[in-house]
Nucleic acid binder design. Structure first.
Lengths: 249, 249
DNA sequence: GGACAAAGTATCAGACATATACTAATGCCG
DNA sequence: CGGCATTAGTATATGTCTGATACTTTGTCC
């Protein structure tokens, strides 16, 4: 008789709280199967391929059937995001910096495997069980520091946002020049086009940036992933430096 | 006879490169008017209110007419984003830290005025004239530092991403409990619901976080904007600390 | 003045989210 | 053992959207 009643329906579904009644026709469908099917489609066809008719069809039902289990398409996306995120790794490190770094890399690995996750329109702060589980890991990593809650949450959201942004950016560049031989070439094409548009008189610094991108290309035998890793690491360590300043000795 | 030809059409439109030919029927419509009308609608009704038919109607044309000037709806969104961002402020500071801080706050002000900007699906790295102009300002601010390009761009993207994320988060929380007396209350509602769901046995740290959110509420006479400003400043200064480490003395 | 080329329009197809009203299946109570 | 309340899934329909295609209009240039 805990007052679960006050918990809104979308949250109840997100946390898979059991639906009380056992009356009426039993359900052949449930939230889990719907979400799993939707995620499978997203993995295959991207987020754009996920529509209620297609998800239902892949399960052998009509489009409307989903509305018995999922309030709306937006809610389905939220459910998918939490499901696809999955459980966090167990990170038991004494060193907060190593811990947060591993946490970030783990999150990055998930997003790289499911790029569509970076495009799910986030609605509100973390609220799904997996999101909370990841949050818990990060908070535990920081638990020995003297940071207050605001700083912990701030750091955590900052890292998380950075990971999403950087994975998305990388994917977009890579997809931009579709099949164009990976990211390095796409970056060159981008630089070339921009170098034509950016007038050095109006945008001196930016113009120098773009020409440096064209001329100071990395050695051609460097694998794309190494470039991306280096860029990612750069920003991440910058954030961690910032956290370190806050934590002190 | 510069080879503008190689610049793809979407970029030509984004930079308003003049269309060469003067043959045929003269255009009553142009990219600028379309984009301005679309932005006006977005300002009024949000991003969801922007559809090609509605934009065209507001100009007294049929929906299909827009396709003569804008390749697709996605492209229109890109055009809108750059237009709505507007020109950056002139920030002439010797101190890079003050400069970047002002830059971030200026960007935040723009996004707060047009929250839909935080939800435009970004496609690719900055490429519009206004985006480049903002970039130029940030690069100029950092020009006296000894940072290399990768670090400058990294810092700049990091700050920019942080601003977007934090404005969006704030707006979502505020809208979440619609008309519910602003952000502070919404945050309380969120905390209350989560406190019920987060099992202290499985998520000890997170549970403590949520209960602290409920009990350590800020003094009730604190204006919402002050809380938001404090949160924003926290993350921003953290990033700037990280940049400072990179720059050195 | 007439051919031409581009602008704007009309019509159309294919999807999609979602409301409403309907049919079907099941457990419970009598 | 039967029927009813209750819930699951379905059928149908509406309004909307993006974008394709083909047509009409309106200027310019020879």
């Amino acid at each position: 008789m805990t007052s679960d009643d006050v918990i809104p329906a979308p949250l109840r579904r997100l946390w898979r709280l059991p639906e009380s009644s056992r009356l009426g026709r039993p359900a052949a469908l449930d939230v889990d199967r719907i979400v799993a099917a939707a995620v499978e489609i997203a993995d295959r066809d991207g987020l754009g391929g996920v529509t209620l008719p297609k998800v239902a069809e892949s399960l052998g039902f009509t489009g409307m059937s989903l509305y018995r289990h999922v309030g709306s398409k937006d809610e389905l996306l939220t459910l998918m995001a939490d499901h696809a995120l999955g459980a966090p790794p167990d990170l038991d490190t004494d060193d907060w910096r190593d811990g947060l770094r591993e946490w970030a890399y783990a999150q990055r690995a998930v997003l790289q495997r499911r790029p569509w996750l970076t495009r799910v329109p986030t609605s509100g702060p973390p609220s799904g069980p997996h999101q909370i589980a990841w949050m818990e890991v990060a908070l535990k990593i920081m638990s020995r520091t003297r940071l207050d809650w605001a700083n912990k949450v701030g750091a955590l959201m900052l890292i998380s946002g950075y990971v999403v942004q950087s994975v998305r950016q990388y994917r977009e560049l890579a997809e931009g020049r579709a099949e164009g031989q990976g990211q390095a070439d796409a970056e060159r094409d981008y630089g070339r086009a921009m170098a034509r548009l950016v007038d050095p008189a109006r945008f001196p610094e930016t113009a120098r940036l773009f020409s440096s991108m064209l001329f100071e290309a990395p050695p051609p035998d460097t694998p794309n992933t190494e470039i991306a890793d280096a860029d990612f690491s750069l920003g991440l360590e910058l954030i961690l430096d910032g956290v370190a300043v806050r934590i002190g000795p």
